[in-house]
């Protein structure tokens, strides 16, 4: 095993050390998946709340999330930078130029997208579904769960879009992550750096890897969707 690692450490691809390259890919995935996990855990219940509960200013909150879908990453980066910098509100946490700051940036960018798209999927569910659930004796909570289950493909599409936004993000991530080699350097920031250096071959190679990861995620989610439509499929209905 040690000789394998030593061998890998010595090998290079387009002038970049293979271990370093794998580290960049691994960190990219770790940061984006962490951000997506936070977004999903907080965003989906919020989307369900917005879709299923009536409260004052609900329309305004939904409009706000719709507007924030188009948040410019550099603006998010700038605000986060100011908040996380030594004199900022959260400066005491020493998060600037850490992977945690990058997770935070991606979370903020993907959050409105996932909430808005999931909310749209939930309100699109035919109201007859809720009535049908009521006629069969569903409690309010069971009705809500049924509507969420009916909207599952739309919600999944929202989560996929969120993951897409997170993995493709560069502006905010470079501002709060700093693109430090071996610590906060991810695929997108490496592509930006290598392009600046004129190393187009590596930038292109990383771009292709990024696309391949997106394709794999899409294929996996499509498979999940397909399974959801058959009995042998996933447990969405159990």
């Amino acid at each position: 095993m040690e000789s394998l690692i030593a061998g890998l450490a010595g090998s290079t691809i387009l002038g970049v050390n293979l271990v370093e390259l794998l580290g960049i890919i691994w960190l990219s995935l770790k940061v984006s998946v962490s951000a997506l996990a936070i977004v999903t855990l907080v965003g989906l219940p919020l989307a369900a709340f917005l879709a299923l509960k009536n409260f004052p200013l609900r329309g305004a909150v939904i409009n706000l999330f719709n507007t924030f879908m188009g948040l410019p990453p550099v603006v998010v980066g700038l605000f986060l930078y100011l908040i996380l910098s030594r004199r900022g509100l959260l400066g005491f946490m020493n998060l600037l130029y850490t992977p945690a700051a990058m997770v935070l940036a991606q979370t903020i960018l993907a959050f409105p997208l996932v909430v808005s798209l999931s909310h749209a999927a939930l309100v699109k569910v035919d109201p007859i579904i809720r009535q049908a659930a009521m006629t069969l004796g569903a409690t309010s909570r069971q009705q809500a769960v049924t509507i969420i289950q009916e909207a599952r493909y739309g919600i999944l599409a929202g989560v996929m879009a969120g993951l897409g936004r997170a993995t493709a993000e560069v502006g905010a991530v470079i501002m709060v992550g700093g693109n430090i080699a071996g610590y906060t350097r991810v695929m997108t920031t490496t592509i930006a750096l290598e392009t600046d250096k004129g190393n187009f071959a590596l930038a292109m190679a990383l771009g292709i890897i990024l696309l391949a990861i997106s394709l794999l995620i899409n294929l996996a989610l499509r498979a999940v969707q397909k399974m959801g439509r058959t009995e042998s499929g996933i447990i969405l209905w159990d």
Binding site: I128, Q131, A132, A133, M134, T135, G137, Q149
Partner: peptide, 20 residues
Amino acid sequence: LNLRRRITLVLPRLGVFNTT
């Protein structure tokens, strides 16, 4: 809820759940 669970209404437009 107990009473609601002892009666049921079959709607004219059924509201079929997207499953089997």
